[in-house]
């Protein structure tokens, strides 16, 4: 069967890859958006924190025999706690300064983390087996779907929309939204904003680590895996609108699909299509597709 002259299996598999990449874009850009919204810091260490998630899961399995499911819960907590430490000891000192200082600090932190992991593990990738429960695949008729890849999409969407629900529909989310607009006033109303900021950074970092654990069985676990991905994720955040929660999720998934389709119809442009869209969005709607002008 063909669609627009393209075999359906090829189109389907590229759309699936696009959706998987989009799932990672969505989780990572969601974390960046939450952090930027409340802390006004562009967290350049996000890619390194994603890489830490994958590495800690790999280390947990190979050194301690800790399985995937435990790592999927424990790793975001561990890396999130590391984020809390960074926020308490370093980022906190920069809130009154320009965004640029936060970006430079987190960029430096990213380089240090990557350097340590390169020194310890080299740059050749480590492999992480797909957990037994999610091994194999199913035939959808027009294409073959590896179960683990389907799981990535389900897990990513669950976490993204769970986060969206927390921010849009709960009291804690109302604190976050109000704190993003006017943190001083939120403090004057009796809410401990410094604690809220620490929690937010820790949660954003934990999301990156969660994505890292999800990625471990499908990508090579190596110290540079985060820096390769993070540039695209920043473009996703800009296109969605800095700080926009739903913008991050929808744009992440949408751009993953567009990237997948570009690989089918015009492969030469597939690695730059996201940046082309970013340039167009910046020119036409600088606040991003979902950002407030």
């Amino acid at each position: 069967m063909e669609i627009f002259g393209i075999p359906s299996a090829l189109l389907g598999s590229q759309l699936l890859i696009g959706l998987i990449n989009g799932s990672f874009y969505a989780i990572l850009s969601l974390g960046l958006a939450i952090i930027f919204g409340l802390l006004n810091i562009i967290n350049f260490a996000h890619g390194a924190q994603y890489m830490m998630g994958a590495f800690i899961a790999w280390l947990a399995l190979t050194k301690f025999g800790i399985n995937y499911w435990v790592a999927l819960i424990a790793t975001p907590i561990i890396v999130g706690a590391f984020g809390v430490f960074l926020e308490r000891t370093m980022l906190r000192k920069l809130y009154k300064l320009d965004h640029l200082y936060g970006l430079l600090l987190t960029f430096g932190i990213a380089l240090i983390i990557e350097g340590i992991f390169r020194d310890q593990f080299g740059i050749s990738g480590q492999s992480y087996d797909v957990p037994e429960l999610l091994a194999g695949g199913v035939s959808l008729g027009f294409m073959f779907l590896p179960i683990y890849r389907g799981w990535i999409i389900v897990a990513a969407l669950t976490v993204c929309f769970g986060t969206w629900f927390m921010i849009e529909k709960t009291k804690l989310g109302a604190y976050l939204r109000a704190g993003t607009e006017n943190p001083q006033m939120v403090q004057a109303l009796g809410i401990n904003v410094p604690l809220l900021i620490t929690f937010t950074y820790g949660y954003g970092v934990a999301l990156a680590a969660f994505a890292g654990v999800l990625a471990a069985p499908v990508f090579q676990v190596n110290p540079l895996m985060g820096s390769h991905l993070i540039i695209v994720v920043f473009a996703v955040v800009v296109i969605g609108g800095m700080g926009s929660i739903m913008g991050s999720i929808v744009t992440g998934l949408g751009l993953g699909l567009i990237e997948g389709l570009t690989k089918v119809f015009y492969p030469e442009a597939s690695s730059v299509i996201v940046f082309v869209i970013m340039v167009i969005v910046l020119l036409v709607r600088p606040a991003g597709l979902f950002g407030r002008t």
Partner: peptide, 15 residues
């Protein structure tokens, strides 16, 4: 008044 909150969310915001 917080723009991203409804009137009632604004009202219920402070503990």
């Amino acid at each position: 008044i917080f723009a991203s909150l409804s009137a009632e969310e604004n009202l219920m915001l402070p503990p």
